[in-house]
Simulated scan of single mutants.
Amino acid sequence: MHQSFYQFLMTQRNHLAYDEISNFAQNAFLDQAFPKQAIDYHEISEYLELNAGYLPSMDIFDTTWQRYQESEG
């Protein structure tokens, strides 16, 4: 069974790191409404575009999504 994007994103959390993906993961962790079970790019992308003021650029999501896809290989 595949993990959700959120589950993958939580593997990228590192409170000692200051890179964009670690920050994205930390902020998603704090976002109570994040779609935690979602595995669909468009569902997550739409949520982030409408609700995630903590994500300064959707490029960060796209890069993280690519890593997620590679991990599911």
Rank of each mutant, 00 (worst) to 15 (best):
G53K: 09
T11Q: 15
L9P: 10
K36Y: 02
S45V: 02
Q12F: 11
L48S: 06
N14Y: 13
E49R: 15
Y6D: 13
H15W: 10
T63L: 00
D31C: 06
S4A: 07
M58L: 08
I60E: 00
D40L: 01
A17G: 05
Y68V: 04
S45C: 14
Y18E: 03
L16F: 04
E72Y: 00
F8I: 05
R67D: 03
M58Y: 06
A52C: 10
N27K: 12
F34G: 00
I44T: 07
I21D: 00
E46I: 06
H2F: 12
L9H: 03
D19A: 08
Y54L: 03
M10F: 07
Y6E: 06
Y47I: 02
E46R: 13
L50F: 05
H42M: 12
L55P: 08
Q37V: 11
Q37H: 11
D40I: 02
Q69L: 09
E46G: 11
L55C: 04
A25N: 01
A52W: 13
M58G: 06
D40K: 08
Q7W: 03
H42T: 10
A25T: 11
E20F: 02
E72S: 08
F5I: 01
D40A: 10
K36L: 03
L50N: 14
G73N: 04
P35A: 12
Q12R: 15
E20W: 03
T63N: 07
H42D: 14
S57K: 07
I44G: 00
N14M: 08
F5G: 00
Q26M: 13
P56K: 03
H15E: 15
P35Q: 10
N51P: 15
T63P: 03
A17T: 01
I44Y: 00
S71E: 12
I44W: 07
H2W: 11
T64P: 10
F61G: 00
N23W: 06
A25S: 13
W65I: 02
S57I: 01
E49K: 05
F61P: 07
E43W: 05
Q32A: 11
R67G: 05
L30Y: 14
I60T: 10
N23E: 11
A17H: 13
I44N: 03
G73H: 00
P35V: 09
L48W: 14
P56E: 08
W65F: 03
F24G: 02
